[in-house]
Amino acid sequence: MTTLPAIDVTGLDCGYDGKAILSGLNFSVQRGEIFFVIGGSGCGKSTLLRNLIGLLRPLAGQVKFSGESFTNADAARRRELLRTFGVLYQSAALWSSLSLRENITLPLEEYTELTRDERDELAALKLAQVGLTGYEDYFPAEISGGMKKRAGLARALALDPEIVFFDEPSAGLDPVTSRSLDELILAIRATLGTTCVVVSHELDSIFAIADRVIMLDKQARGIIAAGDPRVLARESKDPRVQEFFHRAAFPEAAPNSH
């Protein structure tokens, strides 16, 4: 296996209508890493995510997956690259007219030569992996919010991607469900060595599962801190970083450093 980073971002400017919200971003995500993009509301976390997954075009700079440019790829190559990652959207974005099985088999139908039976077996496996064994015939409207997120993750895993992007996975979930989703992220990484990129501002999740974080800031329009969140919380001198990590009480991970 190559040692190239799973994602490499160089000189990335992103924003809307030619106006950059974030500029000059440089960072890379290693294989098998659980990488968090954190920061307060409106700092551009979601914009960055949309640039990484190709929903928005960078204003400048580029995004590379395993050393290969995603930004400059031609249409055919881009399609190839698209299937190497999965995305769990904030609202799970399950297709409401399809059952959970069909939600998962659709990408398989699109990209593989598997037979219908094999696809169904895989859908059952993916649902079992996220703890929804036996829910194949349910429609998204018939399951709860936490289950939708799990099913969304099962769909993101359908093609065994190397990278899974999570957009605010804990949004709208109770702490227990949110915690179980964190565990699921760890389990997926342990089983398949998947690289996980999580956009979140949930301190509990950050301290529980993140290997490394980058913190974005609205005023700085870029990265103001990077590294292990536990170390950052303890040792960073930057008041913005301190404010972010210590806004919520989290005794073990955020000991008093004053």
């Binding site: 077996e121 496996l125 649902l127 079992a128 992996q129 036996g134 349910y138 089983t191 398949l192």
Partner: peptide
């Protein structure tokens, strides 16, 4: 890890949550 997934796959088709 493969063994674990294989077990899950075997178990998956036996469980059906009634609807």
């Amino acid at each position: 890890a493969v063994r674990d997934l294989l077990q899950k796959m075997e178990g998956a088709r036996e469980t059906i949550v009634p609807l």
